[in-house]
Every structure is written in C-alpha cells, then in structure tokens.
C-alpha cells in the first residue's frame, strides 16, 4: 500500500527525518510513536507531499508519488488530519466537510456560475455525503454552525469527517487524541476500530502509548529522525532502545 524507502529531510543542516524506511500493508493500522521532535509530523508531511524529501522514494498503491504535488497525492487516496486544527474560517461545519469531497467531484467555475444541472447534481451528492460523514463523527447537530466556533475536540472531529468524506485508501492521523477528554477519546478509539474493521489503512501518530497499543497492529518508533524499533506493540514496548529514548527524554 505505502512504501517509504530511505527518505530523509533536514532543516538548517539538522535531520528531522533520516533514512526512514517503512512499509504499510493494505488494511493495516500502523502506529508511529516517538518523543517530541522525533520527526513524526515531518514524516507525515513527506508522505503527503507538503514537504519535499531530499532523498529516498515514496510509493503509494504501487506508484511513485514523491514528486507529486500534495493535491495529487490526496486525489490518489491519501487523507490527513493535521496535528494542529485546521478548520476553514468563514464556512459552516457542513461546508468544511464538503471541501473534503473536492477531489472526488468535478464541477468547475463555469458550471457553478451558470448553475448547470451537472453542478446541481454534484452539490446534492456532496451535501449528502458530507452529512453522512458528520453523522459518523457525531457532529450532525453542529452542521450549520460556523466551523471556527467549535471547541477544539469538535474541530478535530470535523477534520476527521472531512478526511473520511474523500473515501481515502490511506488515512494519516497526527495526534488525533491530544486535547480530547476521556469520553471523546474513547469515541475516537471506537471510530478508528470501526474504520479498521472496514479495511481502511491507517497511519497513527500518538503520544498516548496505551491508545496506540490498543489500536495498532504494529508500532514504529522514531527518535531523532530515525526508526529505532518496528514491530508488534508488545515487542516494541519492551525494546531497550525504545525505553532508553523515552527515559532520555524525561530525564
């Protein structure tokens, strides 16, 4: 599904991601953990194309994507939920989610300006699918509110709905549980389990090790931009290198 091969990226001479190799199989939930600044978000940006890799190759669904623009990778079936909430201001919650369907629809300026039948059909379908996605993350009652007035937990859910709306093949979640309270966290975990059961491939960055252990089939540990462990949760948790990295951070 996704093959990351020897990918590196540095900022001002310091490597944020260094020679990372990672394979994610179809239908797998792969957790990515590591101390602050380990390079997890940078790795996600390299995969989705928001940052260019200096070295290495990235393939998605058997196709080289490392030279493709982010919107092209999105259209191939990658959806990301960013670590920092990025809801679109000046739009309602529903409209925000409708944006997620951009790559799956095609009505352009002319069709919109003239209100062509094709455009109307598209709009109806987009709204219906957005509502379904909102329902799925439990935001239905908020649909007509301005998106930027949502509490942070709901903003995260909104982004998730936007990402799911596009019917991705690969979903990248960057710390989706941070800032969520107990009940919201549980709800998110259940949703991820549901998505996994539906066969969706997921890359999950999360600091809460218990959360990742519960959801992931496999855990990759990053430290200082390198992969220091890769395996089933039970194995990775007792890895001496991993323990050292985490202890080193808290010391």
């Amino acid at each position: 599904m996704l093959a990351v091969q020897g990918v590196s990226r540095s900022f001002g001479g310091v490597y944020a991601v260094r020679d990372v190799t990672l394979d994610v199989a179809d239908g797998e939930v792969c957790g990515v953990i590591g101390p602050n600044g380990a390079g997890k978000s940078t790795l996600f940006n390299l995969i989705t194309g928001h940052l260019a890799a200096e070295r290495g190759e990235i393939s998605f669904l058997g196709r080289r994507v490392d030279r493709l623009a982010p919107h092209r990778r999105a259209r191939l079936g990658m959806s990301i939920v960013f670590q920092a909430a990025r809801v679109f201001r000046g739009m309602t919650v529903r409209e925000n989610v409708m944006v997620g369907l951009h790559g799956r629809t095609s009505a352009g300026f002319v069709a919109a300006a003239l209100r062509l039948p094709r455009h109307r059909r598209d709009e109806r379908e987009i709204a219906a699918r957005a509502d379904a996605a909102l329902d799925r993350v439990g935001l239905s009652e908020w649909a007509d509110r301005p998106a930027d007035q949502l509490p942070i937990g709901q903003q995260r859910a909104l982004q998730l709905a936007r990402a799911l709306c596009a019917r991705p093949r690969l979903l990248l979640l960057d710390e989706p549980a941070s800032g969520l309270r107990g009940q919201e966290r549980e709800r998110l975990a259940e949703l991820v389990e549901e998505l996994r059961a539906g066969g969706l491939t997921i890359l999950l960055v999360e600091h809460d090790v218990a959360f990742v252990t519960r959801l992931a089939d496999r855990i990759v540990v990053l430290d200082l931009g390198r992969v220091i462990a890769d395996g089933p949760p039970a194995e990775v948790r007792n890895d001496p290198l991993v323990l050292a990295a985490y202890l080193g951070q808290s010391a």
Partner: peptide, 13 residues
C-alpha cells in the same frame, strides 16, 4: 484563504 496546506490535502490544486 484559511490554509493552503489543508486545502491541498483535500485535493484542491
């Protein structure tokens, strides 16, 4: 207008 990054992630050129 809000975020070019997030827009691109939704498939917007």
């Amino acid at each position: 207008a809000t975020s070019e990054t997030a827009a691109a992630s939704s498939g917007i050129p």
